[in-house]
């Protein structure tokens, strides 16, 4: 199954200002998987994500996407890789000076030779795909947080990526909106077969979408558990993992 691995993280050590947050971690993500990265606050989930998408250089180790190194690639190769995945940021990270349609158009304009009309058509399709049809000419400031995230997702989808990264997709959303977004993620995987990596601490979301998860520990600076969420909830070696996944045993009434 090793050749199925589309993302490989090898001996990765990351951190800020010479202070390591995670040390020598290894994991792989298989093609078509929904992979969740979990952990307590400040354990380095987002940092790990930033390294995986090449925003920050790691202290050591390697991240390989599609079999190519993200860390050692030159600028051209890295740009080629970046073209093949999309990232959805916490707040959507839409450009405030552009309408939703223009935001989604931007990667198309940068990477494709499509005419303006074609770009607009594709962008409108992508917005419709995330249920934002009719909001094309709205400015990001005029729509709700959930809509901004979905618009960010539409922008990430613009180039039909083979891989999608989500940073805290359900943070700050009400349960219904969060559920809609989860449903959207599942729909996307089913439609396009894209590999999806989600950084989250929303357990409902994890149990709803994740095929496989890893859990990071702040104390140990490494992965403390790996597997499917249900399996880990029942059988994890560490009590902390089981507690985490059952919200410290405080189940719903």
């Amino acid at each position: 199954m090793e050749n199925d691995a589309i993302i490989e993280v090898r001996d990765l050590t990351v951190g800020y200002d010479r202070r390591a947050v995670l040390e020598k971690i290894n994991f792989t993500v298989k093609k078509g998987e929904i992979f969740c990265i979990l952990g307590g606050s400040g354990c380095g989930k987002s940092t790990l994500l930033k390294h995986m998408i090449g925003l920050l250089p790691p202290f050591s180790g390697d991240v390989r996407l599609f079999g190519e190194s993200m860390v050692y690639a030159d600028d051209a190769a890295r740009h080629r890789l970046m073209r093949r995945f999309g990232v959805t940021y916490q707040g959507g990270a839409l450009f405030g000076s552009m309408t939703l349609l223009e935001n989604v158009e931007l990667p198309l304009a940068e990477y494709t030779g499509l005419s303006r009309a074609e770009r607009r058509k594709v962008a409108a399709e992508k917005l419709a795909q995330v249920d934002l049809a009719g909001f094309e000419d709205y400015m990001p400031a005029e729509i709700s947080g959930g809509m901004r995230k979905r618009a960010g997702l539409a922008r990430a989808l613009a180039l039909d990526p083979e891989m999608l990264f989500f940073d805290e997709p359900s943070a700050g959303l009400d349960p219904i909106t969060a559920a809609e977004l989860d449903r959207l993620i599942l729909k996307l995987r089913d439609q396009s077969g894209a590999t999806i990596v989600v950084v989250t601490h929303d357990l409902d979301s994890v149990f709803a979408i994740a095929d496989r998860i890893i859990m990071l520990s702040k104390q140990d600076k490494k992965i403390v558990a790996e597997g499917s969420p249900c399996d880990l909830r029942e059988n994890a070696d560490m009590l902390w993992v089981r507690n985490f996944l059952t919200r410290d045993g405080l189940s719903r009434r």
């Binding site: 930033k50 998408i53 090449g54 925003l55 740009h79 970046m82 073209r83 995945f85 999309g86 990232v87 940021y89 916490q90 707040g91 990270a93 839409l94 450009f95 405030g96 931007l106 990667p107 940068e110 990477y111 960010g152 922008r155 940073d167």
Partner: peptide, 16 residues
């Protein structure tokens, strides 16, 4: 502000 909102990161990951 764009940096705070991760818009700068978004640009980078879009390869821009």
């Amino acid at each position: 502000t764009m940096k705070v909102n991760e818009e700068v990161s978004a640009l980078t990951t879009m390869g821009i």
